[in-house]
Design a protein around this nucleic acid. Sequence first.
RNA 1: GUGGAUAUAGCUCAGUUGGUUAGAGCGUCGGAUUGUGGUUCCGAAGGUCGCGGGUUCGAAUCCCGUUUUCCACCCCA
Length: 453
Amino acid sequence: MSQKPSIPKGTRDFTPRETAQRNYIFDTIKSVFRLYGFQQIETPAMENLITLMGKYGEEGDKLLFKILNSGDFLSGISEEELKEANSLRLAGKIAEKGLRYDLTVPLARFVVQNRHSISFPFKRYQIQPVWRADRPQKGRYREFYQCDADVVGSNSLMNELELIQILDEVYQRLKIKVIIKLNNRKILSGIAEIIGESENLTNITVAIDKLDKIGLQKVNEELLSKGISQGAVEKLQPILNLHGSNAEKLQQLKTVLGSSATGLQGISEMETLFNLCDTVSLNAVLSLDLTLARGLNYYTGVIIEVIASDVQIGSISGGGRYDNLTGMFGMPGVSGVGISFGAERIYDVLTQLNLFPENQSEQTKILFVCFGEKEQAYCLPLLKTLRELGINAELYPDLDKLKKQMSYADQQSIPFVGIVGENEMRENKVMLRNMKTGIQQLCSLKEIIDTIQ
RNA sequence: GUGGAUAUAGCUCAGUUGGUUAGAGCGUCGGAUUGUGGUUCCGAAGGUCGCGGGUUCGAAUCCCGUUUUCCACCCCA
């Protein structure tokens, strides 16, 4: 027996049904992106490793898929280096390319490299797979899609507003009820400053991000274990316990962060943004959530996260502003703000809530089944006409028994079958069977079109 | 990267303290029905029991290694 086929760990095949469902998600997102004036770009699956390395922190470097150099990849490696067997050092010499880890770094590279042909503000969207050499888990894969929309080269909070509207519109169209959580990195910086732990900002944000998940007690323990002083942790408590409306929270923060210029600027940004949001009447609930820190350290302003209110699955979208997006590629002073839809999780939410539309537009509307070659030939012009009218139609290619041909239609959920034999040809008609009701009727081409369109 | 579980037909799973020829349901194919699918009935095909080694008269079953998938942690979408 030949070997059992398999695919690499953490990757998936998609059946026609799954692909149709995924396209429903992608098409919905795409059409909203376009509605707001975003244009699509694509970048290669592989980037030069030097472009990717060091952009995602130490953890990130480990999770990069590296591509072995073509040809004799060991040429130019000295005996000593081979004996040393230092995988990390050797990897840098025998692999010069890697699979992209996200769509943001390729965007930064794209902007810098194509600056001659783009003008700011540059509004682009990108829907492509990314790869991470992570250990797969439920809802986590080594190959998955990201759907990003970013505005590059504009500092205006109007962009944040538009991205929030996009989130709102997409989830309204997908019929998913969501809460949009907002925070601001500058407020987090201000807090760290006030409690005298500015240099520990990352540890603080990582810890308080878990508040919902592990509770206040455990968060405090983690803070202390990361070297945050007891006094600082105590000062943090009233901030973690903030409550009230968004405006009330901001008001309370203003007094707490009074001596931090950065903090006050963050508060002012959020006030502006909430006021802007009030003018456009969103469906989603907007919530200022100070525990929202997100792992990504490159955010510098507004931070956005979306969770589904009817399903417990974690965040289904995220985003934020990152100043100096292109600085790492030698083009300083360009700000970016973007959002990303988590297609895999959205798929899970739609599945759980049974929200996929039943009638896929990609589906075949009518299948012709025949008894012989003459009948098949008779069908060809009919098929052509139907297809010209945009009606998805197909002909069963083999002269199998009618039973077999019919069950094919049944399995594909094709709603109509056109049966053609000598009798039908004689009358220049087709026996049209409605597969749902079982009713069938001798029809002319025009009658077929009127019935199934 | 750390820890735990798992692997038997295309799929979902049974399989007794280790004992003849490893089973079921679903699916597939054929027939009942040569011009009619989804229901029903009958029949058939389909397995190196993840892979490699060990213990034993004898291993799907016990032991070791390895891989896979799943779960938790780290991190993340």
